[in-house]
Design a protein around this nucleic acid. Sequence first.
DNA 1: CATTATTTTTAGACTTGTCTAAAAATTAAT
DNA 2: ATTAATTTTTAGACAAGTCTAAAAATAATG
Lengths: 217, 217
Amino acid sequence: MFTLSEENYLKAIYHLESDSKKGISTNAIAKSLETKASSVTDMVKKLSEKKVVLYKKYQGVTLTAFGKKTAANIVRKHRLWEVFLVERLNFSWDEVHEVAEQLEHIKSPKLINQLDALLGFPTHDPHGDPIPDKDGNVNTLDKILLSTLNKNESGVCVGVNDSSSEFLRFLDKKKITLGKKIIVLEKEDFDDSLFIEIDGEKLSISKKIASNLYIKK
Amino acid sequence: MFTLSEENYLKAIYHLESDSKKGISTNAIAKSLETKASSVTDMVKKLSEKKVVLYKKYQGVTLTAFGKKTAANIVRKHRLWEVFLVERLNFSWDEVHEVAEQLEHIKSPKLINQLDALLGFPTHDPHGDPIPDKDGNVNTLDKILLSTLNKNESGVCVGVNDSSSEFLRFLDKKKITLGKKIIVLEKEDFDDSLFIEIDGEKLSISKKIASNLYIKK
DNA sequence: CATTATTTTTAGACTTGTCTAAAAATTAAT
DNA sequence: ATTAATTTTTAGACAAGTCTAAAAATAATG
Ligand SMILES: [Mn+2]
Ligand SMILES: [Mn+2]
Ligand SMILES: [Mn+2]
Ligand SMILES: [Mn+2]
């Protein structure tokens, strides 16, 4: 079994690995967990003894197969709880993360399997992120950033890159929700802003917005 | 805010107070939490500084109004989660306690209010224990032990005194569930065992069983 | 390649919550 | 009312997890 702190480190490393591919640096983990590098070094040694990461001094850290599965299971719980909060308890997608951060540490295999069933075995969380299965496998679909689309191209909104409350509430305000079709009517060379059509409405969005929205062609 | 450990102490004191009425002794708390008296003394000082208990050396401890409300809220969460697990996730009443012990510490007022609504504002948990309201008030009904009934008296099963898995599974085996009517056909002077009728079935139960079942006349 | 600059690790300290062993206070028994 | 037994508190230690400051290793730069 793993402590709450160990689980948070595992999850952080898991997410960093999915971006970087290489060994994850002490500093990267420290930044992601808002802690100090020295604390990370201590914890990483402990995780190494528990066989969930490979660690050589000054070389960064990599998850073992066991570590990856363990981390994926925490992410699975986090995302299933997020679905529950949105679908059953009327939370909005910008309110769920903080609570899911707590719920993901509840230890009960039966609880999470039954929750999965109750929710109809969802494949994605409210932010469009895939839910790992019991074995830790993730079905990562081929989503791309809206900012990569050209004029007259279109796609369906399937996820967010930034899931901060601020960004999510902005999307709510603009009525941009997952599942909707977006058509790029214009692309400004000057600032890379887009003039798009969604739900019959036309609006322009900045490059920053467009590079935090995932779509699928 | 309170730590997980502080919350567990508060809850233990709360439950002990509902039985004893007087100041709760260090040893009683230690036994209830399976810890050592010295640890209790340390924690009790901390709780006293946080204004949730009144404490004078060697005099035991009492919850303040604030402490009582805080503790009741933890019990509220515990029992609401138990209802959820049984009603929505197909847990049986002997499986829920351990998981509820974890879930009761999740901090989110919205979560618990929405859960309450989802469940239809239940008044009792799967073991027949009352669920405190948001202000910490409990609606304690006048239940009595089955063992206090005399021959030819009857009542409806409304709760258990012992909620250990062993006892609950025994009740399952004998098809004794909350809400059913029990008629006392005989009472043996020799060993105080009862010969009862429930759901048309006749069976005899020991004094020990009868003094762990609450009924309402 | 030699010297900065940066990253990472170590050393030592602190907090929370726990424990054992010993001292002090309270309660029970002669 | 002493003495004995029990309960409670104190004193000191330990593990987990964190921090600061300093040392060591690695990376970057001229
Ligand atoms: Mn989240
Ligand atoms: Mn999410
Ligand atoms: Mn319970
Ligand atoms: Mn219960």
